[in-house]
């Protein structure tokens, strides 16, 4: 592994040593890196950080439920060609002008090595990852319409994120290097928040993280708050100059952390229960 390609985090992204190692393993084995983890643990941010950390361009392919593997390779704009044939203002025999490369095709045809992020692969159809096996393995694909092969000039670094909405097929998994981003522990969380809010008073940060981790442990929450919500919350607290004593006892602006009515109710009840318990002691 050359030093130029070793990833060691960036100043705006806190990565665990294990994650850094896994990134480097994936890069030197030339395998796609599959990242899973709770929502809000920074899966998408990782690709940006890698691109920045080793100074490469980033191409993002956002997957939606309607995305097909073909869309990433190329799209043959038949309708445009049909229209053009109607009005005769283009040479319709030149099919190449109706071939539009998708994100994967774009990454392959780049002169420089790039980082390709396939974001939320689990959103697509179950068969989607299987349809990309050959392309990700060989880093090439064939366009029958123009009898042309698009081959990667520089093997891109492929980062794939998944929210585990669907199981990924085994054949696909076999080819990946896998990392599960665990929910950060308190110390790491403080660092992460500080990266986003460098001006934050230390005491407020301590109290907010304590309250945050307590809230995550409240039984019966349907959607636990995640990192991004904590960052928003401390910002709200800091902006409104909430007095630090009430951060834990009242948890103001709870709506920033919890997005469901029932969750807010559950948390409020737990908060009252905790106060009562503390009073008895």
């Amino acid at each position: 592994m050359t030093a130029a390609h070793a990833y060691s985090g960036t100043h705006d992204y806190i990565a665990s040593p294990e994650l850094m190692q896994t990134v480097n393993v994936a890069v030197s084995l030339a395998r796609p890196l599959l990242i899973k983890g709770e929502p809000g643990t920074g899966k998408t941010m990782l690709a940006q950080s890698i691109a920045k950390g080793i100074n490469l361009d980033l191409i993002v392919w956002n997957i939606k439920s309607t995305t097909k593997a073909q869309d990433g390779l190329y799209v043959y704009d038949t309708v445009q060609r049909l229209y053009d044939s109607q009005f005769g203002d283009h040479d319709v025999s030149n099919i190449a002008q109706y071939i539009k490369l998708g994100k994967l095709g774009e990454a392959f045809s780049c002169e420089e090595r790039v980082v390709l992020l396939i974001d939320e692969i689990d959103k697509a159809d179950l068969e989607f990852p299987n349809d990309l096996l050959w392309e990700l393995d060989q880093m090439e694909f064939y366009i029958p319409e123009t009898k042309q092969t698009v081959k990667a000039r520089q093997r891109p670094i492929v980062i794939i994120t998944s929210n585990a909405e669907k199981e990924l097929p085994d054949a696909f998994l076999r080819r990946c290097v896998f990392h599960y981003i665990e929910f950060p522990h308190e110390e790491m969380m403080k660092q992460i928040v500080l990266v986003h809010q460098p001006q934050l008073p230390e005491r407020l940060l301590d109290l907010a993280t304590e309250a945050f981790y307590w809230l995550r442990e409240v039984p019966g929450l349907q959607k636990k708050p995640s990192t991004s919500e904590l960052i928003d919350w401390v910002q709200a607290l800091a902006m409104h100059g909430v007095d630090s004593g009430s951060v834990i006892s009242r948890m103001p602006f709870m709506g920033v952390l919890l997005k469901k009515d029932t969750d807010v109710e559950t948390a409020t009840r737990a908060l009252k229960g905790r106060k009562a318990g503390a009073g008895r002691r």
């Binding site: 190692q21 393993v25 084995l29 990392h179």
Partner: peptide
């Protein structure tokens, strides 16, 4: 960490 990232594909 290496063995896990290469051999295990699900948490």
């Amino acid at each position: 960490a290496l063995a896990r990232s290469v051999l295990v594909k699900s948490e």
